[in-house]
């Protein structure tokens, strides 16, 4: 029964992948090895599409795998299955925090967790910057030091950063749409 298999596999993935959508990749390969409804050869393409299309990577991957395995109904089941454990666990923790959020030990732990969490987000931003502005591969290929950064992307990056710093009222969605249009107009 493919729907049950999908549900079970993605439920497990939701339960055991800690730390973001990319943590689901090893699970996908494992599924590909064990079931014939997922071909491991298509996983890299799936990751590429999940990373760049709208929606958080983790859910995108679940929808994509579910659809390839069993059509629209499969996409729905896999997506709901990956959400379910998160939702249950978070609801339990939220209930706990509602009662113990003022406890000194909780406050102390959060005090230490916050900067670490921001450090992880900064690391993610650093990776984003590397992917979007730095073109190390092109540099290795051509040997030309100018190829190490994507000049067009760097100019756009600096402009957007400055605009963002001075005009906080502009909605982030506008930035995203604008940058997408710039990308098309100037052939990024």
């Amino acid at each position: 029964m493919i729907y049950l298999e999908l549900f079970w596999e993605f439920f497990k993935m939701g339960l055991f992948s800690v730390g973001g959508g990319l943590a689901t990749i090893p699970f996908l390969y494992d599924i590909g090895r064990r079931y014939d409804w997922l071909d491991t050869a298509v996983i890299p393409d799936m990751i590429a599409i999940s990373e760049s299309t709208p929606g958080p990577i983790g859910i995108n991957m679940a929808t994509y795998t579910g659809y390839t395995a069993a059509g629209i109904f499969g996409a729905l089941i896999a997506s709901l299955a990956i959400i379910l454990p998160s939702a249950i666990i978070v609801l339990l923790i939220s209930g706990f925090l509602a009662s113990f959020g003022r406890d000194k030990r909780v406050l102390n732990t959060m005090y230490g967790l916050r900067p670490a969490s921001l450090g992880l987000i900064t690391a993610a931003a650093f990776m984003l910057f590397k992917v979007s502005v730095i073109t190390y591969d092109a540099f290795v290929e051509s040997g030309n030091i100018l190829d190490i950064i994507d000049i067009k992307a760097l100019v756009l990056f600096v402009c957007l950063l400055v605009i963002r710093l001075f005009f906080r009222k502009i909605h982030p969605i506008l930035f995203i749409v604008f940058a997408g249009a710039i990308g098309i107009i100037f052939n990024f």
Binding site: D45, A48, I49, S52, T53, I121, A124, A125, L128, F129, V131, S132, V133, A153, L156, F157, L160, L161, R164, L165, P172, F175, I176, F178, A179, G180, A181, I182, G183, I184, F186, N187, F188
Partner: peptide, 24 residues
Amino acid sequence: FLHIKEVAYAFTGIRVAVTALVIV
């Protein structure tokens, strides 16, 4: 999808915007 030229261009721009937004 990803092999359409305009889509690839748009996503390159979007990634740059997302990076700037997250950094701020």
